[in-house]
């Protein structure tokens, strides 16, 4: 599974598209600078995360062709598979403790987006992982083919043990079960 990310000399690729490295401290300073200078920087990060993962999904389909299309037609499998891919991008340890008729929940341990707040002992009043929330919204939107919103409900930057993201919703969500801890060995 780890070879989702391909190395060609010093360059990294995912599904044929280049990936760049952003260390978590640079990510933190970028977020701070945006927060200081633009309105709605949180929304901006959310949109950038969402856009990035949607582009990733389309290159996934282009790259794998028919097998990708088959996978995408099975929402639960597609979601698990994508979470597996995201787990190799350094964002944190991502799992789906429950998904069901009404909500999809993501739990991230050691969120890369919030880690520097913890390192610097900077306590935030509200969750800070906007890009991650956008990424999860983008993943689900691509799979469900329906607009969704994702909200971070717990965050390590606020002193919680993990970050938690919820996509509330509706009748449109038809995933039926979560994998919980047994996900570890999933297709590895």
């Amino acid at each position: 599974m780890a070879d989702y990310v391909q190395k060609k000399r010093k360059e990294l690729f995912l599904f044929g598209e280049q990936l760049s490295v952003l260390d978590v401290r640079s990510f933190y300073y970028l977020k701070k600078e945006l927060g200081r200078s633009v309105r709605n920087s949180n929304e901006l990060l959310y949109d950038a995360g969402k856009d990035a993962v949607q582009k990733m999904q389309s290159s996934f389909v282009k790259f794998l062709g028919d097998s990708a299309r088959v996978l995408m037609s099975d929402p639960e499998n597609a979601l698990n598979e994508f979470v597996e891919v995201l787990n190799y991008l350094g964002l944190g340890e991502i799992s789906i403790p429950e998904s069901g008729l009404k909500t999809i929940k993501f739990v991230v341990r050691h969120s890369a987006e919030a880690q520097e707040y913890v390192n610097l002992k900077e306590r935030s009043k509200s969750p800070v992982c906007y890009a991650l929330a956008g990424i999860f919204a983008g993943v689900c939107e691509g799979i469900l083919q329906n607009p969704v919103e994702c909200k971070e409900t717990r965050c390590i930057a606020c002193g919680e043990e993990v970050c938690e993201f919820v996509i509330p919703s509706g009748d449109d969500i038809i995933l039926t079960r979560g994998g919980g801890d047994d996900r570890q060995g999933h297709k590895a």
């Binding site: 598209e17 490295v21 260390d23 978590v24």
Partner: peptide, 17 residues
């Protein structure tokens, strides 16, 4: 590059398009 953790030049990192 490991599951849940990417480290480049000793720094924890994310891989982004």
């Amino acid at each position: 590059i490991e599951k849940g953790l990417v480290v480049v030049a000793g720094e924890r990192s994310v891989l982004i398009p």
